[in-house]
Design a protein around this nucleic acid. Sequence first.
RNA 1: GGCGGCAUAGCCAAGUGGUAAGGCAGAGCUCUGCAAAAGCUCCAUUCCCCAGUUCGAAUCUGGGUGCCGCCUCCA
Length: 472
Amino acid sequence: MAEIRVYNTLSQEKEVFVPRKPGQVSIYVCGVTPYSDTHLGHARPSVVWDVIIRFFRWLGYETLHVQNFTDVDDKIIKKAQEEGVSALEISKRYIAEYLASMDALGVLRADQYPKVSEHIDDIIKLVDQLVRKEHAYSANGDVFFRVASFPEYGKLSKQKLEELRQGTRFEVDPKKKDAADFALWKSAKPGEPAWESPWGEGRPGWHIECSAMSLKYLGEAFDFHGGGNDLIFPHHENEIAQSEAATGEPLARYWVHSGMITLKEEKMSKSLGNFISLKQLLEKYPRGLLRFYLLSTHYRSGLEYYEGKLEEMGKGWSRLNEAALKLQEDLAQAQGGELSSLDQEALEKLDTLEKGIIDALSDDFNTAMALGVLFEAVRDINSYKHQGGYHSQVLQKGWDVLRLWAGDILGVLQLEKQQQEGLTDSLMQILLSLREELRKQKNFALADQIRDQLAELGVVVEDTPQGPRWKV
RNA sequence: GGCGGCAUAGCCAAGUGGUAAGGCAGAGCUCUGCAAAAGCUCCAUUCCCCAGUUCGAAUCUGGGUGCCGCCUCCA
């Protein structure tokens, strides 16, 4: 089994991955607060973790993937009040929207999607435990985490407690004993969702849900905790404090954070109002291209989005996709027989390249490099065919490599023709065979007219030695 | 102000001590009725700047400069 190296935000170094339990990988990825449409920024961690999980499975690991929905939150409540519906109704709507978008992106479903609203008891128990251990205190129905009681506070974000106290830009809640303390439980305000608790009616603060739910579904010291790097502070820092103060065990072994998507060099976010809706992108671009774009840069780097970016990337992507598509067609006509030196050489190259892909993904999930190697494979395969190679073993190997890595693991291929009924296919067959007849009769004027008019509809016809192909 | 990160060709982007992957764009050629697709060749003596360590640095150290993120809800 290949050695996996992972950059751990906690140690700020690449570390060799050693699972908590041999052969098993446990993963908690912070999900979304469902109060508005899913945007491109949300797609990044989802697709990155999708690839990581697919890769681990290919390596033979059993994976357990938990992703939460923070469905009790100020923004949801506000939205609900604006629309005059219940908070639950809002979160339900946007959870469905989120899952539909992720399905459309080809992201595998998590094993569990725990919601705050369904884990109030677990949260209360955890808060209570922290209060008993004097890591937390109640004040007029609120409960705060006593940051000073956890000496390692700041270890993830590399913040010093003193700096944090000074850096507070907001008015400090006078009920807090320390400016850096944070709420575990908030007392109920009129008209807001509230639950009974030992401290009176109220609801959980942000952060505590992830501690409670990750503990419940994954236990202590699970393998990976992930999310966008904007969650490092305060969210993940506070999770660590809560969980580790309560259990005395590490929360997670490896902290993996993905970079932000920026728009005009500014972070894409709901609060800035500069987000690109995922739903809109999915209507406009193929799923495979979207994933190709998201995976074209290392997951920790920032990724710029701008109008026309997908079009630019589309040219490269379609070369990769077309190569796979053609290979699939070629397989039907492939020939067997003895392997020539050309065949032999091609097989060896493909073998080396496949190892390169595995190495790239093993080294901190370097999808950008894996894609680079896949392009080399495409060039080699095309070149092989250009030289007259047609051996089934080689074509099969090429197809296997592309299908597995570009297809099954990275998920950037789009092999099915998009939005295309069987009827269109049949009609195109008729049209193209007629055009072939015209070309045989050297009636190029008419043949070109057909091709040009199809092009106007967005249908591209290519005349190849194996006959005409078409694509949208 | 504190913390973290980044700076590689016109653009996107790998590369963490051994002499610059890959993609797009561009130039030439092959194939082709023409086109498209595909292939071949070319396209960074050089990696923001300045010092240093080293036989050797894009890669390590120190100092600049610029940009991004976090410190407030955020993927």
